[in-house]
Design a protein around this nucleic acid. Structure first.
Lengths: 369, 369
DNA sequence: TTGAAAGCGCTAACAA
DNA sequence: TTGTTAGCGCTTTCAA
C-alpha cells in the first residue's frame, strides 16, 4: 500500500493547532507571514477533519455542517492558508485566468481596453495573462494550436487580432472560450463598433461643412480578418457616394494608426498638386500627427484643412479635435463579461450561440472641423 | 495495488503510433489540431519509452541517447504534444511567469513600462500576469502574504507601487523574486531615475530663463514608500535654493498625475493674486492639462507662463513641450531582465545583493519654455 | 542510459 | 455530513 511519507510525521493528536514542525518555523513573530507554506492537509489535520471537507468548506460547497465550515475557516485563517492555484487547476481543470492578446501594448486604445478587461476580471478574482501579438509569426504561434496561454487560461480575448479562417477553427477547437474585440468571427462572441456608420457620420459631417475634396487617412494594409479599416473605409465611400462626390485615389493614404504615420501622410497630402481641404483619419493618433504636420507648415485646422479623427483619445479635447467617440474601456469590460459568462457555462462551448455586442459611438464636434 | 484506470485502455503493443482511441477522434482531417490533448504518457507509449525519458528528452536534459531523444521529439511533434504548464509547475515548482503590478493601466507611463517588460519576458518564453493595484486595499491584498500572484509566478515586478516596510518584509518572505520600478527598497532589486537631479535640471532651466516665480505641479499625497514625488520635489527646491529664490507655498499644487488634475491645478494657479510665470509639472500629462487651461483662458506658453514637464510623452513633441525625457520601455525591460536573472538563480533569494539600476534622463528643450 | 514509482497539492467520485 | 482514495500530468529520485 501507498505509504504517505510526508504525512507520517504529523501526529493525529494535534487538533486545533497546526502541525508542530511547521509552526515551529514560524515561531512567534507575530506579524510575519510564515515562510512555510501550509497545505490543505495541514489545515485538515489542524481542524481535525479530512482534506475533502476542508476543500468543500473553503469553496462554499454544500454538504458541510456550519460548525465544521466555521472551524475550517478559522484554522485556515490562523495558518494564513491559501489554496495553491496550480494544484487546484490541475485537479479541477479550471484556471480562473483569461489570456488577453493585443497587437501593441503602448497604444492608447489597447491600454484602455486592457484596463476595461482587468477591472471586470478583478471583480471575479480572475487573473489576466497579457500577450503582445505583434506580427504574423507571433499571431500564428499564439492562435494556432497551443500558444503559451494554452491550459493556463479558461478563456482568451483577442483585441484587434486578425485571424484567418483556419486559425479561427483551430482556436475554436482549443477548448478555451474565445471573445474577439474589433473583429467578428462566426465561431466567437465579439464586441465591436458600428464601424461603417461611424465612419459615414464623420465623413458626412465634413461634407456638411462644405468639403468635397476629402482625404482618407487609413491604417495598414490588411491581414487576416481584421476588417475594421475596411468597414471604416466603406462608410467613408458611401458618404461620398451619397453626396455624389467623385473619389480621387491620391487622397487615400496609410498612416499605420500611429502619430508618426499620420504626420508623414499629411505631409504627402499637402505636397499634392491639389491638396485636400479635409481629412478623415481612422484614429485620433494619426490625426494628431496630421495636426502636427499642419502646424509645422504654418497651417492650421480647420482654416486650411479640416480634420476629423476616430476614438476620442484623452488628449483630443486639448487639440480641439473633432472625432468619433467610442467607450473603449466599456468595450473591454463587455468582452471580459462575455468571457466570464462562457467560462462559467458548462458543457460544450461550441453548442452556444456566439454573443455579439455593438458598442455605440458618437460624433464629437470640436474646433478642427 | 494502484490500478491505473485511464492507462489500462491503452495497449502496450502500440509502438510508434499514438493510442488508437485518441487518434481516432482526430481522424484524418490533416490541418486540424486534434481536439484531444495528448499527455506525456501518450508520447511515451508512442515512442516506446518511459515518461521519464520523454520528460528528459523534451527538456534537453543530459543522459538521453541522441537517437532516443530524436525519436521522442519526432513523436511529440507528430502528436502536436505540448507540455501542460500547470502540471509541470506543480511537479517542478517553477511557473515561468512573472506578475506585474501597476497603479493604473491606462496611463502612458504604465503602458510603456508594461510593454518593455513584456518584450523581454517574451524572449525567454515567460508569461506575464497583469494586476492593476489601484488603491490601498488592493495594494495590501496584493503585497501582504498571498496575493493572487502567489504560486502562480516566480517573480513580481512592482511599478510605482508604494510599500510600507512591513509589507516589504512580507513580500520578501513570499519566496518570489521581487523587482521594483520607481521606488527603491532595501530588500529588492530596482530600477529608477535620478529623480532629484532630473527635477533640479528642469527647474534650473526655468530659472535660467529668467523665472523666479515658479510653481510646482505635484502628484498626489504620498502613501507608503513611493518617493518619486518627494525626490522630484527635493530637486526642485534645491534648484530654487541655489538660485536664492524664496519659496511661496501657494505655488505648490497637486495635479494627481492626470490631465484633468493638471488643468484644475493650472486654473487655481492662474486665479492667484500673483500667478506664477513658470510651472514645473512632475508629469507631461499634467503639463498637457496645464497647457489646455492656458489655451482656454487665451493665454499661451511660454509667453504668459513657461512650462516644463517630465516624461517626454509621445505627444509632447506636438505640444512643443519642454520636458525631461526618460526611456520608459528601457526601464521596464531592465526590470524584467533583473527578474529573470533572480529567477534563474538557485538558492535563497535573500542571500543575493539587490541590484540597482539608475536609468538616465535628458532635458529636451522645446517651445513651452 | 533508461524505467518505476513516489510525489507536487488539490478536486471529485464514491463510500460510509 | 464526512472520509477515502484515485487521479490531474508532470518531475525527480533511486534502481536497474
Amino acid at each position: 500500500m501507498k505509504q504517505p511519507t510526508r504525512t507520517k510525521t504529523r501526529s493525529k493528536a494535534v487538533q486545533s493547532k497546526a502541525p508542530k514542525s511547521k509552526i515551529a518555523q514560524t515561531s512567534d513573530q507575530g506579524l510575519r507571514v510564515p515562510a512555510t507554506n501550509f497545505t490543505i492537509e495541514d489545515v485538515a489535520n489542524a481542524a481535525g477533519v479530512s482534506v475533502a471537507t476542508v476543500s468543500r468548506a473553503l469553496r462554499d460547497l454544500p454538504n458541510v455542517a456550519p460548525s465544521t465550515r466555521q472551524k475550517v475557516l478559522d484554522v485556515a485563517q490562523e495558518l494564513h492558508y491559501v489554496v495553491d492555484p496550480t494544484a487546484s487547476r490541475l485537479a479541477a481543470g479550471k484556471t480562473r485566468t483569461v489570456a488577453v492578446a493585443v497587437p501593441v501594448l503602448d497604444a492608447w486604445y489597447c491600454a484602455k481596453v486592457v484596463a476595461g478587461i482587468e477591472a471586470v476580471l478583478k471583480e471575479s478574482d480572475f487573473d489576466l495573462l497579457l500577450y503582445a501579438v505583434t506580427n504574423e509569426s507571433e499571431r500564428s504561434r499564439f492562435v494556432a494550436g497551443r500558444g503559451a496561454w494554452w491550459r493556463r487560461s479558461d478563456a482568451v480575448i483577442l483585441v484587434d487580432i486578425c485571424l484567418f479562417e483556419e486559425e479561427a477553427m483551430r482556436l475554436a477547437d482549443s477548448g478555451a472560450a474565445v471573445v474577439t474585440i474589433g473583429t467578428e468571427l462566426a465561431q466567437f462572441s465579439s464586441v465591436r463598433l458600428d464601424e461603417m456608420n461611424s465612419a459615414r457620420e464623420a465623413t458626412e459631417h465634413l461634407i456638411a461643412g462644405g468639403h468635397r475634396r476629402i482625404a482618407l487617412l487609413k491604417g495598414d494594409p490588411l491581414v487576416g480578418q481584421f476588417r475594421v479599416p475596411l468597414y471604416r473605409e466603406q462608410g467613408f465611400f458611401e458618404a461620398l457616394a451619397d453626396a455624389e462626390i467623385e473619389w480621387v485615389p491620391d487622397l487615400q493614404i496609410s498612416g499605420g494608426f500611429s502619430i508618426d504615420g499620420g504626420r508623414e501622410a499629411m505631409r504627402a497630402l499637402l505636397s499634392l498638386d491639389e491638396p485636400p481641404t479635409a481629412v478623415f483619419a481612422m484614429s485620433d493618433e494619426m490625426a494628431f500627427g496630421a495636426l502636427h504636420e499642419l502646424q509645422r507648415q504654418g497651417l492650421s485646422a480647420p482654416d486650411d484643412v479640416a480634420i476629423v479623427g476616430f476614438d476620442d483619445h484623452d488628449i483630443s479635447e486639448i487639440f480641439g479635435l473633432t472625432t468619433i467617440r467610442q467607450d473603449v474601456e466599456a468595450i473591454g469590460a463587455a468582452a471580459a463579461r462575455m468571457a466570464l459568462a462562457s467560462v462559467s457555462r458548462t458543457g460544450d462551448q461550441s453548442l452556444f450561440e456566439p454573443e455579439r455586442v455593438v458598442s455605440p459611438t458618437k460624433l464629437i464636434v470640436r474646433r478642427t472641423s
